Simulated assay, not measured.
Amino acid sequence: LHLNVFISISLKQQNRAALEAFEASVCARDEVMECYLMTGDADYLLRVAVADMAALERFILEQLSPIAQVEKIRSSFALKQVRYKTALPLGAGA
């Protein structure tokens, strides 16, 4: 998949029921590679992998926008992956 997109989501409410309902909705989507509950301006940060802009548009309009808890959707595109690793820095700072 050629398009890596980071999507910030703000919810209408931040109560437990709203958070759980939103999380269940996004976890059911194969396009969502990562989902984080955040502090700051947005409630959630998603990393989504899609084939192209048309697929991203479909995902936002058909999957994210209809979720009742969603108030605001903001997306950013990765231009280049500068670093990606999975090894934890165990022993760093010892």
Rank of each mutant, 00 (worst) to 15 (best):
I60A: 06
D52V: 05
H2P: 11
D41Q: 12
D52Q: 02
A78N: 07
L61G: 09
Q81W: 02
T39P: 00
I73N: 04
V5L: 09
Y84Q: 15
I60T: 06
I73G: 02
A94E: 14
E34L: 10
C35P: 01
L90Q: 15
Q69G: 01
V5K: 04
A42E: 10
A54W: 09
L88S: 11
Y44R: 00
I67G: 05
E71N: 11
A28S: 12
L46V: 01
K72Q: 13
A94T: 15
E23F: 01
G91Q: 09
R16N: 14
S75T: 14
D30R: 13
K85T: 14
A21S: 14
L88A: 14
F59Y: 06
I73W: 01
F59D: 02
S76K: 04
S65T: 15
S65V: 15
A78S: 15
T39L: 09
P66E: 05
L61V: 05
K80L: 08
L19W: 01
A42L: 00
A42N: 07
A51V: 12
L3N: 11
D52Y: 07
I9V: 07
A92R: 09
Y84R: 12
F59K: 00
A18C: 07
G93Y: 03
H2K: 13
E23I: 01
D41E: 12
G91E: 07
I67F: 03
S65N: 12
I67K: 02
L19N: 10
E71P: 04
A51D: 15
A92Q: 14
S76E: 07
Q81A: 08
N15K: 07
Y44L: 00
L11C: 09
S75P: 06
Q13A: 14
R83W: 10
K12F: 11
L46E: 00
A94K: 13
M53I: 10
L64H: 05
L37H: 13
G91N: 07
V26P: 05
N4Y: 00
D41C: 04
N15T: 03
N4Q: 13
H2E: 10
L90M: 15
L79F: 06
A18F: 00
L1D: 09
F59Q: 01
F6L: 09
Q63I: 02
Y84V: 10
V70P: 03
L46W: 00
G40H: 08
L3G: 04
A87Y: 09
L37V: 11
D52T: 06
R47T: 12
A49T: 09
A24F: 07
S10D: 11
K80S: 10
R74C: 10
F77L: 15
K80I: 04
A94P: 13
V82M: 05
I60Y: 08
M38H: 04
A51H: 14
E31N: 01
N4T: 14
K12M: 11
T86S: 13
G40S: 08
C27K: 14
D30T: 12
V26T: 10
S8C: 11
G91L: 06
L64Q: 00
M53E: 15
E71A: 13
R83C: 06
I67N: 06
Y84D: 14
A55W: 03
P66N: 03
C27F: 10
R58E: 11
A54V: 13
E31S: 07
A55R: 07
L19S: 03
P66M: 05
A92P: 03
